[in-house]
Design a protein around this nucleic acid. Structure first.
Lengths: 153, 153
DNA sequence: GCAATTGTTATGGTTAACTAGAACACTAGT
DNA sequence: ACTAGTGTTCTAGTTAACCATAACAATTGC
């Protein structure tokens, strides 16, 4: 059971935070089709928000086909998000990212610095790879297909 | 000269978008002390927002010590953000991240999937559970929630 | 059938973000 | 001194998010 966390100090609407947490959990595989979301009243008491706010979040999720609400029963996951990726590949990517984050922290970068870097790289137009980057990418792809035969790091 | 971009379709306040763009440019080294920001009226015409909105953004930046506004002259960068990291190290980290993003794309991940992964890794305290352990925990929680049925209906 | 639980709707009020238009105050260049 | 460009303030209005309360509707479990 996902448990929500709402931060009212910022300017991010509470309902948007709830929606985003469900979407993120779906992307990470922490929620699957059939899983039950907390009831509206549970979220109301645990997050100190209004029922209409929770309902707005759940309704937005339902409109995008991610959940299904049934009166008297509850709200259940009914869709997927991106999760078409192989869990094992996902896990390898997470491990490499964890290493990268560790190195970045050691270089003095704060979390926000890393987030800015990610935003910047994701915004770069794809397909402008240098030969060096292409080689590195090919090597990494080989390692991902055959994780046992670890090549030069 | 930075040029702002404001998206009014979402629920993110316009002034917050301006602030965030300046902070991000500072973190990436795209803006330095002494650089001039666009004038209030320039932003008003280029982004179709109100002068009060731009002023609110610039004021917030000034309160956090990042910029300095001088009447009749303009608004200038007067502070730094995190960017204490060595530019060369920054470049290396960017290159590695670019490779990682390429591999993630090849594995079928969308940009939002990667963002969720980054958020998740940044949120885990040093020495956190591995992805497999987290998945196992999520599965156990699901089974405890729905002991006999596999889903709704 | 009945009671408890759940999602849903309705009404009204509060607050903050944003917009609009105008005017003011300071500075730099001529 | 003058003009133009700059940041700044003011008043007023619109919109959206959120809260509070209550009632309604459908399902579940006994």
């Amino acid at each position: 059971m996902i448990d929500f966390y709402v931060d009212r100090t910022g300017s991010v609407p509470a309902y948007a935070q709830l929606v985003q947490q469900v979407r993120e959990a779906l992307r990470l595989g922490l929620l699957r089709t059939g899983d039950k979301l907390p009831t509206v009243r549970e979220v109301v008491t645990s997050c100190a928000v209004n029922a209409a706010t929770v309902l707005k979040a759940y309704r937005e999720l339902e409109l995008s086909g991610l959940v299904e609400a049934r009166q008297g029963a509850g709200t259940y996951i009914s869709g997927t998000l991106g999760g078409s990726a192989d869990p094992a590949a996902m896990d390898r990517l997470r491990g490499r990212l964890r290493t990268w984050v560790g190195d970045a922290r050691q270089a003095g970068l704060e979390d926000d610095d890393m987030r800015a870097l990610v935003t910047s790289v994701l915004a770069e137009p794809p397909g402008e790879l240098s030969a060096e980057q292409r080689a590195a990418q090919a090597q990494a792809a080989r390692e991902q297909q055959n994780p046992r035969s670890a090549g030069p790091r």
